[in-house]
């Protein structure tokens, strides 16, 4: 074997650090979109490495839907303190109060889509010109066509049919006034890569990812956590199960799976054996074949 080579995680890390440094160099006011989920935690970890020994030279943005897991919020506050970075919070509740966003009604109501308004308002009011996200191309078919540097027009919209070609490692972040970019440093990572990297780098993640006992309701083939927003339907009941979450979103739409994986090693084993995608437990993606593309066009990440 040739001595001068990187293994796949080292190569993906080097690529992500390159992208993060390009963002810092090409934009005036970049920010990292931080959801408290594992992907944005990994992006933040990579940013720490990319700019060391300097601090991460950009704030974190958290879009607070009001429907959070308390564990996620605690984790966020602790990490921000540790890194010494600025935290910008966009509140969905405030957008609703101001009449900028309207609460969904009906059985499948969630605040997932409302985040778009709050996110775009937050980007505009803080004059953010590049929002860095932890989206991966393997997650979803609309994301499979995303660029590392993804252009958004003055309305924050994505035009998938008119994307800038991206060749070699040359990223074109030129834009006109009012437009902004989304940047995705871990585009080429898979769910497996993210978990292996978390294990290798010993990155702290919210306890929700590990198996734990919790009150849940079985709905649409997944275990939804019981919380104050839960409305039981006919035939449904609350039970206690040992579960863990494969992705983290709003508490109202994030389903867990039965699991006894309570260490990172066990999670990696479990993920490598699992036969369904991680977003299979997310009700926001099940609305139609192209629901992710439709939300992304409007400004979702």
């Amino acid at each position: 074997m040739h001595k001068y080579y990187l293994d796949h995680l080292q190569e993906l890390e080097a690529e992500a650090i390159f992208v993060l440094r390009e963002v810092a160099a090409q934009f005036d006011r970049p920010a990292i979109l931080f959801s408290g989920g594992k992907d944005s935690i990994v992006v933040t970890h990579l940013a720490k490495k990319a700019f060391w020994p300097a601090k991460i030279p950009m704030p974190l943005i958290h879009i607070d839907t009001g429907h959070n897991f308390p564990e996620t919020m605690n984790f966020r506050d602790k990490l921000v303190k540790e890194l010494g970075v600025q935290l910008l919070v966009g509140s969905v509740q405030e957008s609703i109060n101001k009449g900028r966003a309207k609460e969904e009604k009906g059985l499948n109501a969630s605040r997932n889509a409302l985040q778009i308004v709050t996110l775009l308002d937050c980007i505009e009011s803080n004059k953010i010109d590049a929002a860095i996200g932890g989206a991966r191309r393997d997650e979803e078919k609309a994301r499979a066509k995303e660029r590392f540097f993804s252009h958004r027009d003055e309305f924050g919209q994505w035009d998938p049919k008119n994307q800038r070609p991206e060749l070699w490692n040359v990223f074109n972040g030129r834009k006109n006034m009012g437009e902004h970019f989304r940047a995705f440093p871990i585009s080429n990572w898979t769910e497996m890569d993210v978990w292996n990297y978390i294990m290798k780098e010993k990155i702290a993640i919210p306890s929700l990812y590990y198996a734990h006992e919790r009150e849940v309701v079985y709905r649409d083939n997944t275990y939804l956590p019981n919380c104050e927003y839960m409305v039981l339907r006919d035939g449904e009941f609350i039970e206690k199960k040992v579960i863990r979450f494969r992705t983290l979103g709003d508490i109202t739409i994030t389903g867990g799976i039965e699991s006894d994986a309570d260490t990172i090693e066990k999670i990696v084993m479990e993920v490598s054996a699992i036969r369904s995608t991680e977003r299979g437990n997310r009700s926001d993606d099940k609305r139609s074949d192209t629901s992710m593309e439709d939300r992304k066009k409007q400004g979702y990440f």
């Binding site: 499979a144 994307q163 585009s187 074949d289 593309e293």
Partner: peptide
Amino acid sequence: LTDGLRSEREQGITIDVAYRYFATPKRKFI
């Protein structure tokens, strides 16, 4: 599986570059 965009699904053609990932115990592929 690969034709992800709405217009591609409607027209049944691939119009963009789509990235796919798979791995075997020996290598990871993009």
